[in-house]
Write a protein that binds this DNA or RNA. Sequence first.
DNA 1: AATCCGGTTCTTTTT
DNA 2: GAACCGGATT
Length: 807
Amino acid sequence: MDTFKTRFLAARQAVIDMSLRDLNPQQRQAAEAADGPLLILAGAGSGKTTVLIRRIACLLRFGRAADTEEIPPEATEEDLEFLERYVRLGSPEDRERAEALCALDPAMPWQILAITFTNKAAGELTSRLEKLLGAEAGDLWTSTFHSACVRILRRNRDRLGLNGADFTIYDTADSQSLIKRILKDFAMEEKSYPPRSVLSFISAAKNKMQDPEDCRKAAGIDLRRQQLADVYREYRRRMLQADAMDFDDLLLNTVRLLENDGEVLDYYRRKFRYILVDEYQDTNMLQYRLVSLLAGERKNICVVGDDDQGIYKFRGATIQNILEFEEDFPGARVIKLEQNYRSTSTILDAANAVIRHNQGRKGKTLWTSNGKGDLITLYTAGNENEEAQYVAGRILASFSAGGNWRDHAVLYRVNALSNRLEYAMKRNGIPYRIYGGTRFYDRAEIKDMLAYLAVVANPGDDLRLRRILNNPPRGIGDTTVERAGQLAAEQGSSLYEILCHAEEYPELRRGLNGIRSFTALIRDLREKRTETLDVLYDELLRRSGYVAMLEERDTQENITRLENIQELKTNILSFIRERSGVGTLEDFLDEMALYSDTDEMGKEGDCVSLMTMHSAKGLEFPTVFVVGAEDGLFPGTKAIGEDEEMEEERRLCYVAITRAKQKLYITNARQRMVFGRTQNNMLSRFIQDIPEEYLQKLPMRETAAGTGFRAYHTGSGSGSENSGSYSAARRPERSRPAPRPLYSAPKSAAPAYVPKVGDRVKHKAFGGGTVLTVKTVGPDRMLEIAFDDSGTKKLMLSAAARFLQKE
DNA sequence: AATCCGGTTCTTTTT
DNA sequence: GAACCGGATT
């Protein structure tokens, strides 16, 4: 081989290595691989996002260079010398030119499509890419599946056969109310056809790319399935009529568009030279089809995922996609990232021990060079109150030892468990935030405002129009609306069109005045579409009479509603700012439909996080509490006995455990009230799979029988468990626990000396110091003390009292 | 049109 | 145990 080439290859490899030197060998391999299908099996905490980012950077900087023996044909001796000098000296100012000399077919930013599942993940990817690449990052397509589809569909809206100019997105609540309408019109009982399950039937059908007709055929003589197919057909008919798409339609219609329109397919295949998909284990069939369509013959598709973390089967995700990737894309390279940078080895070993029992998995074993760390604490409480109080106590203790609130997360299987925990947090003055409650735009008044805006954008949207037609009341009664609905159905036109010609129909006479003022309102607002969005919104608030209606009575409820409406204005303003004034009404509505405010996670200051295990995916915390670890709850009753369900639950357990960086607590309760019934559950079988050597079980021994309450004093020996002062007071007066949920700090623990701000104090361990702040936290006080020699520390008074005296 | 009552339901939910 | 929905009642 000619020496020039050999030298060039060596120098180039060295340059690339220099740019990736902070990655481990597997990560580096994944970042360097360029063309062809690539599966990255990334265990929890293995630096998956980092790899994605570095891979993109690598494609942009080096193109195929890291992955081939080819050298750029135009390379000269002079270039080579430059490279070799750079390798020798590593002068940072030469870096850019050196990297450019190495590049072979570098990708352009707009040729890269990176798909994530959540807006949060997409946002994180974008911001980290911006940091690394600067302005170049702006031309990358980093988006969720759904927003990528919206983008494709909008660009090709004239090929979709719409009635109007554009389409509207229905969220799940919209879809559900449409289903309810249809059930009503079909005189079907909601009891025998729960809207939710009808919807998931339709969703499943779409996932298999089945038409209503296909479903009808597949139903055979099954009457129920025939009926479901009929509802599906009507659902689709009304969606088409209103130019509306639900979340599944966004994917489905994009797939259809690409399949049926060679020109469009060709365009995107050419455009996206490289495709990256994150969280591939959570993709469904439609998403798989979409991705393979786009990948085309080139098959430059890189998917990242962890088969052990697939927890969304119930929404149509199939881990088959990741398990069968190598068959779907023959010749695929597979790289496993098994080094974990997040957790202690104890936590990882426990997680491995749990997930090992699953059959359908690729098989990975996480390891770490982090130390063993603390044992996992398994605390068995008598009941759910005790459990919650234990968690609160541990959080207080950790906080007083200098931790932040935000370093703690409490994870549960079902939202129903959050109540007790919330009370415990409140009682102890712990700042907390519960994720996954009602979303901002799920509130009625927000939905109303958005419905107005949606109708302004698209008057053919019957569903939204019905929502606002008589809201605020305009004297348009149900019967009038029903009659108008019938007329619309007969004439195959939209409700709005009927209303616009209401005077032609005698049966609408009763509501004529109201209808006129409504259609006039919409007409006027539609004229304002050319103004900026905030002007339109102000006009809406003024003209609709909605605000006036709320201002009539200033109840607390109305006041919050007005605030929320104002808050939406803030959203609009920041939307306009983001889009530098060019955001359209349609864009805004898209964003509202596609963005949930769980995307705001973690932006809320210093708080303990309470959330379901599902929402915790992708997050990490120094200290994690997994509560309710009981058979019947986790795994839930419905899953026990079902193999596939059990595997999914076990994956969920794996996800939960691997959220913890340093300290993991697992709790269960011997007795627990669930849905108004008292249950006696056994410790979760998943937890029983964790070898004893990793666990510290509390309480270590039973306290005197018959007191009803047990404190979790651990006595001597385990110095880290000194939270007794937060535990339930021992009350010997009754032999049975009476209904008394409240815990109070034992009186005997009330310290004689309560420091005040500015006091000089002396601490046995930390020496002299000055009290900076004193804050009441539940039954206790949190002190912040600036020690003369040991820095500023936060201490809980009850814990510190015996070491502390006034100087 | 508003309010009350009573029966029902209760995994998980990135979009 | 609580929240939510639909129907009935005024």
